[in-house]
């Protein structure tokens, strides 16, 4: 290391300039990249007249907080946000429990049918919502849970969580066999071994699965849209936004405030838990 830096040091400065120039270009593109969000945040604090006059200026003349109270109250976003929180938290809990259980046995044990089960799961990894939506609605209707939070939660937690099962299975497979043997020597049964030893060990994976599920559920649109047709009180933020724009097509600042209210929680979560977001997505390639 030290020899290479010594020989290269006189070459360094012009190269360095190149990299800093590249960084400057990337910084400009990054600004354009998040400009839509900056525009939204700034429009949420402007008057209608300011937004309509167009322009790229991001600084409002005078901060208009009442846009937020309008979106929150008249725009019903206090209801939509609460719905989204309820649906998301419940879905995350169900998905974590069921995927941890399934991933544990599929990753760690060989039993009659295990291969077939994994095969079917992998085969349906990418089943699109558009393909399954009609029978799901019909089924929920027959079960009497279509106009209910529980119907939406079960549908979101029920389908399309194969990736989470596979993440758990991959993690549990990698744990050393001695863990179980030690547990059996200590007299722990199957369930206790899982609860006391395996589940606590899987906390990093649980964080990844929980955060990815949180992201997908918070942002889900197709299922909540269809499930809240007959009951607007069930709308989540992504569906509520359509309704808001449909009813107040000229209230741009209110729309922008509603957008900020809806997206702030997930962006804050991302800011603090970035590592888990990235690990969850990178997992698809590594396996």
């Amino acid at each position: 290391m030290s020899t290479t830096t010594a020989t290269r040091s006189h070459l360094r400065s012009p190269r360095r300039v190149g990299w800093w120039l590249g960084a400057a270009v990337l910084a400009f593109v990054a600004f354009v990249w998040i400009y839509p969000f900056l525009w939204m945040a700034s429009a949420s604090l402007k008057t209608s007249g300011e937004v309509f006059s167009g322009g790229l200026d991001l600084i409002p003349e005078m901060v208009q907080w009442e846009n937020y109270s309008r979106a929150w109250g008249d725009g019903n976003f206090k209801v939509y946000l609460l719905n989204t929180v309820i649906v998301t938290v419940a879905t995350v809990v169900i998905v974590v429990i069921r995927c941890a259980l399934a991933g544990y046995v599929l990753g760690r044990y060989k039993f009659p049918g295990s291969r077939v089960i994994i095969g079917i799961l992998v085969a349906t990894l990418f089943v699109p919502t558009g393909y399954t939506i009609i029978p799901i609605v019909k089924l929920s209707l027959e079960l009497g849970i279509l106009d209910d939070h529980s119907g939406m939660i079960l549908a979101l937690a029920g389908g399309a969580n194969v990736a989470s099962i596979l993440i758990y299975a991959g993690y549990f497979r990698g744990l050393p066999a001695e863990l179980e043997e030690a547990a059996i020597v200590d007299g722990a049964g199957f369930f206790r071994t899982f609860m006391r030893i395996m589940l606590p060990l899987s906390m990093p994976v649980t964080a990844t699965v929980a955060i990815l599920t949180f992201l997908f559920t918070w942002n889900a649109f197709f299922l909540p849209l269809v499930f809240s047709f007959s009951n607007p009180a069930l709308r989540t933020v992504s569906v509520g936004m359509q309704a808001f724009v449909g009813e107040n097509s000229t209230d741009w600042p209110g729309m922008a405030a509603a957008g900020v209210i809806s997206m702030l929680p997930i962006v804050v979560l991302y800011a603090f838990m970035q590592r888990y977001f990235v690990e969850g997505i990178a997992g698809a390639v590594k396996s």
Binding site: W33, I34, L215, N219, V237, S238
Partner: peptide
Amino acid sequence: YFIPVVTTTAI
């Protein structure tokens, strides 16, 4: 560059 991914698509 990753931020748009986490934002709510429908919004």
